[in-house]
């Protein structure tokens, strides 16, 4: 009887402690993420502009920003660019990350520490530098890439215009593939090797080991990596912005959706419309994340 009460108290103390553990993080999230998000959603239902008469005399206009966005041909143009950009980035970043992770965890290749450091280099170098570094690479006449191409007797390419979207994807993947690598390596190395030893005893095939041990154990980080990559790609327009500037190209070749929202909110100063696009992005991310989570069975 006494020990039961004691146990009950202990369990509750434990649960209470655990609940208290969550409070600070949730508080910070609510103050600095949830409130601004709700605020932004509210703005998206108004015609607020940052300058002009609409700053002081804005009004609630319901869904009109969203209707306007969906009936705007530029919005769909931008969506097409976004789809291409995000899909290509997702695949390439993940594949490169996987390749790098396999190199680091395999026993065949020498100098793994140095390799790991090199692979991580672009990721740990701050983004503020990337623009200038890549400008020196891609310039048509003096850029390093074209100089290498010419030295190899290959025709130089117009990286800054004709292949601009691809260039931006290349920069994005360069800067970001190490994230996938990092999570995958951590996941691979955290699988207890006893699992493999046991299955070796039973003479399991490599495929069986991969399917029954590796995959289930790295599935969770795998899905998380995909979500992280996707979120970063759709959210971050640094590279697109630096090759576009304050006005989009006439054919919107670099206008990924986040950049479109930015141009609307801060070049045209139509904050309400820009926030509506921002919310549309959030909904897309939301849906795709849910699909990925469901597929991962998490």
């Amino acid at each position: 009887m006494f020990s039961e009460i004691k146990n009950w108290v202990r369990v509750n103390v434990r649960n209470l402690t655990l609940t208290l553990f969550m409070i600070p993080a949730l508080a910070i999230l609510i103050i600095f993420q949830l409130i601004p998000t709700i605020w932004t959603i509210w703005i998206s239902f108004t015609d607020m502009a940052l300058i002009g008469k609409k700053f002081l005399n804005y009004s609630f206009i319901g869904l009109r920003n969203y209707i306007e966005a969906f009936s705007d041909s530029y919005f769909w143009l931008s969506m097409r660019v976004t789809l291409y950009y995000c899909l290509a980035s997702l695949v390439i970043r993940f594949m490169l990350g996987l390749a790098a992770a396999l190199y680091i965890t395999s026993k065949k290749f020498k100098g793994k520490r140095i390799m790991a450091a090199v692979f991580l280099l672009p990721y740990i170098i701050p983004g503020a530098i990337h623009s200038y570094v890549w400008l020196s690479m891609l310039e048509t006449d003096y850029g390093t890439v074209n100089r290498i191409l010419v030295a190899l007797n290959l025709p130089p390419q117009s990286w800054m215009y004709e292949r601009l979207t691809e260039s931006i994807i290349a920069i994005n993947c360069w800067a970001g593939y190490a994230l996938a690598m990092l999570v995958l390596v951590s996941a691979l190395t955290s699988i207890p090797k006893e699992y493999y030893e046991i299955s070796d005893i039973y003479g399991a095939s490599k495929w069986f080991k991969f399917r029954k041990i590796t995959l289930p154990l790295i599935k969770y980080p795998l899905i998380l990596t995909l979500i992280l990559i996707f979120k970063e790609d759709i959210d971050d327009f640094t590279y697109a912005y630096m090759f576009t500037g304050d006005t989009p190209y006439p054919d919107y070749r670099t206008e990924i959706i986040a950049l479109y929202a930015y141009h609307k909110a801060f070049s045209d100063f139509e904050l309400g419309f820009g926030c509506a696009i921002g919310f549309i992005i959030a909904i897309i991310v939301f849906i795709i994340t849910l699909i990925q989570l469901k597929m991962g069975g998490i």
């Binding site: 929202a261 909110a265 820009g274 992005i281």
Partner: peptide, 11 residues
Amino acid sequence: LLIGFMPMTSK
């Protein structure tokens, strides 16, 4: 996971 998914510039 989704709480901060609104793009930074909109916020």
